[in-house]
C-alpha cells in the first residue's frame, strides 16, 4: 500500500493507494502520528483508490479522530466506495466524523 500526503492550507489530505488493512496499517500509523505531533489540526483521508478497509484500518481512523478531537481538530473521510460507506454506517462510525462517498 502506498500513500501520499499533500497540504491544502491548514489541512493535510492523506490519499491511500491500496487496502487499509492489518498488513498496511503499521506503515500508515507512524505517518499519521507524525502529522498530529507536528501540530496538524485538520486531516482528510481520501479513499478514492482504496477498495478494502478492515477492523485494523478502522482502528487507525479512530485513533486519528481521537487524537485530533483532543486538540479541537477535525478528521474526515472522503471518496469512500459504496461498500466502505456501508461499513461505516453499519458500525455507526459516521456519527463520529464526516464520511463522504465518491
Amino acid at each position: 500500500m502506498n500513500f501520499e500526503i499533500r497540504r491544502e492550507g491548514e489541512t493535510a489530505v492523506v490519499a491511500t493507494h491500496g487496502d487499509v488493512v492489518a498488513s498496511s496499517v503499521p506503515e500508515l500509523r507512524p505517518a499519521l502520528g507524525e502529522l498530529v505531533r507536528g501540530g496538524l489540526r485538520d486531516m482528510v483521508l481520501d479513499l478514492a483508490d482504496t477498495a478494502m478497509i478492515d477492523s485494523t484500518g478502522l482502528g487507525l481512523l479512530l485513533s486519528a479522530f481521537n487524537s485530533l478531537h483532543k486538540v479541537q481538530g477535525k478528521f474526515a473521510v472522503v471518496n469512500a466506495s459504496e461498500e466502505i460507506l456501508e461499513l461505516f454506517r453499519t458500525l455507526r462510525l459516521h456519527q463520529h466524523f464526516p464520511v463522504a462517498g465518491r
Binding site: 478492515d54 477492523s55 485494523t56 478502522l58 482502528g59 479512530l62 485513533s63 481521537n66 458500525l91
Partner: peptide, 9 residues
C-alpha cells in the same frame, strides 16, 4: 466504544 480503537473484528 468510539474512544477505543480495537475490538471491532
Amino acid at each position: 466504544r468510539p474512544q477505543i480503537d480495537r475490538g471491532r473484528g
